[in-house]
Amino acid sequence: MSSSPVFVTRPVLPSLTDIMPFLERIWTSRVLSNNGPLLQQFEADLARYLGVEFLSIVCNASLGLVLALRHYGITGEVITSPFSFVATSHAIRWAGAEPVFADIDPHTLNLDPAAVEASITPRTQAIMAVHCYGIPCDTEGLAAVARRHGLRLIYDAAHAFGVRKNGHPLVAEGDLSVLSFHATKVFNSFEGGAIVSPDRETKLALDRLANYGIVDEVTVSEIGLNTKMSELHAAVGLALLPRIDEIIDARDHLANRYWQALSQVPGLHCLCPPGQPGQNSYMFPIRVGPEYPMSRDALHARLKEDGIFARRYFHPLISDLPMYRDLPSAAPENLPNARPAGEQILCLPLYPDLPEADQDRVIGIVSQPC
């Protein structure tokens, strides 16, 4: 290892100066949770920034996905992507439903609407699609499939903070969209998430589910969970939100440097061209093809030798994990596009304060690995 380590991501933190006024408000009020004033302000400011009207803050995106499924009473089959973080399918199982894997589009790496439609059975109740790396799904195609078959369409939008499609908020698509504010995401509150709803009635129903199903002091209407966000986490979000455009601009700048240096390297394909309107440059995934001098795994190991910790997102496929690999839909022959993606995609280090000198180390190895 020749230099200091470079990790695939690094959390963005608000300055202590920016967060202290919010902490002073907490210490003065002694309100720590239960839909406190900072949480309410965070919810309103975030909805305004994202361009949506109805939004419910939760403690993390995984439980947000569980709530989304529970709200609609989904206990049958949910068609989803095998090419995602494991939380997507785990949430389906925790909600009492069964994941069914459908293949992905080889270019966007998102669920292929034709593969989704071919996977529908009489037990299918919902589609849970993922905007992988913040690349928008074929929302029109998935919506058409959902309409034809009377299915709920829920988006795991963990990667898609601030992304717009055709000028409109991507998180406004589908029946519900769930965002993540985990420390590794474009925008974070250390831990957290949000569910974007189509109307006030749905938002209020989700808010009840997030608070044990409590209606008032003496009424509990359903079996809910405790998925509330604390005032401390809301304070972090409030302190960081004014910087989000600056954060995304910094990501875009670094993504453009990668693109300029690597897009013409034989055997490499850069999946997320910079400069696209409405993108967020969440990650910089490259596809390592057969024309490249070494395999994806060999490149991953070569980078690690120099202290650069890229990530093989997503490897293994969710469908290859022991709790899912025996499902009929997990059979390799059913996933001809997802399988090579899981073997070829590598995400390079990208975060707003990544020093260009460290990025140049990454570029130097990836452009000339041998």
Rank of each mutant, 00 (worst) to 15 (best):
M128T: 14
V186R: 00
F181R: 03
S180T: 08
D199Y: 07
H159L: 13
A126G: 13
I127L: 10
R200K: 13
Y133N: 11
A194F: 02
S197M: 04
L153N: 11
Y212E: 08
L209S: 03
S197D: 08
F187H: 13
N166Y: 08
L204F: 05
V171Y: 05
L179Q: 05
R148E: 12
K203W: 02
H159I: 07
E201T: 11
E201M: 06
V130Y: 12
R208V: 03
E191M: 05
A144F: 12
D156A: 04
L170T: 12
Y212T: 09
E173I: 08
P169F: 03
T184G: 08
F181Y: 15
T184N: 09
S180P: 07
L204N: 12
F161L: 02
R200F: 08
P198R: 01
V145R: 04
K165C: 14
L151C: 14
V130G: 11
A210Y: 04
N188S: 12
P136H: 04
R152V: 15
K185F: 11
P136C: 01
G193D: 00
V163S: 07
K185M: 12
T202P: 06
A160V: 11
T139W: 00
P169N: 07
A126T: 14
G150P: 09
S189R: 03
Y133E: 11
T202G: 04
L209V: 10
A205P: 06
V178P: 01
L179V: 08
I154S: 00
L151H: 04
L209P: 10
R200H: 14
A143P: 09
Y212Q: 09
I214Y: 06
Y133C: 10
E201I: 06
A126V: 14
I214C: 11
Y133S: 13
L204M: 13
I195M: 03
C137Q: 07
A129G: 12
A205C: 10
C132D: 14
C132G: 10
V163A: 06
C137H: 07
D199M: 10
G134P: 07
L176T: 14
N211I: 00
I214H: 06
S197E: 06
N166A: 15
P136G: 05
P198F: 05
D207K: 13
E140N: 14
V130P: 02
D156M: 01
A172G: 13
A144E: 15
A160H: 00
S180W: 00
I127A: 09
A129S: 15
G192N: 03
E191L: 10
T184M: 02
G193N: 00
C137R: 04
T184E: 08
E191W: 00
P169Q: 10
L209Y: 06
D207C: 07
E173M: 00
A144V: 15
T139L: 08
R200C: 12
G150R: 05
T139N: 11
A172E: 13
K185P: 03
T184V: 03
E140V: 12
F187N: 02
L179S: 09
R200Q: 15
C132P: 01
G174M: 10
L204W: 01
L176N: 07
L209N: 05
A144M: 15
